[in-house]
Design a protein around this nucleic acid. Structure first.
Lengths: 204, 204
DNA sequence: AAAGTTTTTAATCAAATGATTAAAAATAAG
DNA sequence: CTTATTTTTAATCATTTGATTAAAAACTTT
C-alpha cells in the first residue's frame, strides 16, 4: 500500500480555492465578490489566493471559462452527431441540457450577465452563432424545412430550455413556486419541449 | 408669457442624476457601479447624489423598481383584457413586448441578474407567478386546452420573446450577429412567435 | 538531522469607494 | 437690498478591498 504523506489533503489547496471561487462568483457575480469572501469560503488565508492565482481577475477567468464550457459543451456533440435524426437531436438536446441545468441552475444567468457586464473580456472567445450555423443540426433542418430560418428555430429551442432557469429567481420570488415545484416542472419539460418543437416542424 | 426663473433648467438636477443612474446601473449592474460613475455621467458633483437620494442603495431601488415595472408592465393589461381572444392576446403580447424590448434590449438580463444577486432586497415585491396564474389569459387557455399546463405555455411564450434579448451579448460576440441582423430578426419574431404559439394550441 | 524548498500566515499598503461636512453660490422671501 | 433658504462644491473621512511582504510553518531532499 502506498504510504500517504503526513496529513495528505485529498483535495489540494489550489482546488479548494477554485471550488470556493466557483461558489462565490456564481452567487454574487464578479463585481459583487470580494476576494476575502472566497478565502473565507475556502477556510484559507487571503494571501493564498494571490499566491496561487496572482489576482482576482485571473481566478475569475478560469472559473468563467469552465462555466461557459459547461453551459454550451453539452450541446455541440449532440447537434453535430451525423448519425442521429433531427428529431432525435431535439430530444437529446432538451433532455441532456435540462438534466445538466437542473444540477447547475444558475449557470445560464451567471454566464450571460458576466458577458454582458464586461463584453471586452470575452471578445472573440465565444462563437455561439457560428457554432449553430455550421452544425449538422442546421444542415438537417434546412433540408427538411428550407422555409424556416434555422436561427429562429434554435433560439426558440434554447429559449424554451434556458429561460425557465434564467427566470427562476423571479418565479420563486414570494414563494410563488417552490423549489420542488420548479424541479418537477423542469422534469416535465424534458418531454414537453421536444413534443412542441416537433409540432413546429410540422407547421405549414 | 410666464417668466422663467433665471437659468431655468428644463431638466431638474434630481432627474439628471436618475437618468445617469439608469444608464450606468443598466450597463454595469449594482455592484459594478461606482457612485462616482453616476456623478460623472450626470456631469455633477458626487455629493449631490447623496443630497437627493441619501445613498447608492436608495437610488438603485428607485431605478430598479422602474425597470421591473417596465419589463412586466406591458404584459399585465394585455393578458387581463377580458374583451380579446386567446389568440389576440398572444399576438399582442409578442408584438408589444418585443417592440418595447427592442428599445430596451438590456432590460430582461438586468432585472433577472439583479434579483438573482440580491433576492432578499426584492422579497415579496414581485409576484410573477401569481400574476400569471390569475390572469384572464390563463382562464381562457384552461378552457380551450385543459390538458396544457398554463405555466408551461406562458414560460415558453416568454422564453421565445425574452431569451433572444438575454442571449444578445453572446449572440453578438465575435461579430457573429450584427446589431442590424439582430434587429431584423426580432422584427420577424413579432409575427413568427404568435404563429408558432398558435400552432402549439392545435397540437393533440 | 540539516539544509533547502514550498506553502501558509499575520500584518500592512495603497487605492478605491460610499458618505459626510462646512463653506460657497444661487435662488427665494421679506 | 437684505436676510433666509436651497442647492452646489471642494475637501475630507472612514471603510473596504485587492494585493504585497516578510516571517513562520510544513514539507522534501540529501
Amino acid at each position: 500500500m502506498p504510504r500517504k504523506k503526513t496529513v495528505e489533503p485529498d483535495i489540494t489547496t489550489e482546488e479548494k480555492i477554485k471550488e470556493a471561487a466557483r461558489k462565490v462568483f456564481m452567487q454574487k457575480g464578479y463585481a459583487g465578490t470580494r476576494t476575502r469572501d472566497i478565502a473565507e469560503e475556502a477556510g484559507l488565508n487571503l494571501a493564498l489566493l494571490n499566491y496561487y492565482f496572482r489576482s482576482k481577475e485571473k481566478l475569475f477567468e478560469i472559473v468563467m471559462m469552465e462555466k461557459v464550457q459547461k453551459l454550451f459543451g453539452v450541446l455541440a456533440p449532440i447537434l453535430n452527431d451525423t448519425s442521429t435524426t433531427l428529431e432525435k437531436k431535439i430530444e437529446l438536446a432538451a433532455t441532456n441540457h435540462i438534466g445538466m441545468l437542473m444540477e447547475n441552475p444558475d449557470l445560464p444567468l451567471f454566464v450571460m450577465s458576466e458577458i454582458r457586464n464586461n463584453p471586452e473580456r470575452f471578445a472573440g472567445k465565444i462563437q455561439a452563432v457560428k457554432l449553430i450555423q455550421e452544425s449538422h443540426f442546421v444542415k438537417q433542418l434546412k433540408e427538411k424545412r428550407p422555409d424556416i430560418n434555422p436561427l429562429h428555430f434554435v433560439i426558440s429551442l434554447l429559449g424554451m430550455v434556458l429561460f425557465p432557469f434564467i427566470a427562476k429567481p423571479v418565479l420563486q420570488e414570494a414563494g410563488s413556486l417552490s423549489a420542488k415545484g420548479f424541479q418537477s416542472m423542469m422534469e416535465e419539460r424534458k418531454a414537453l419541449i421536444p413534443f412542441w418543437m416537433k409540432a413546429l416542424l410540422k407547421t405549414r
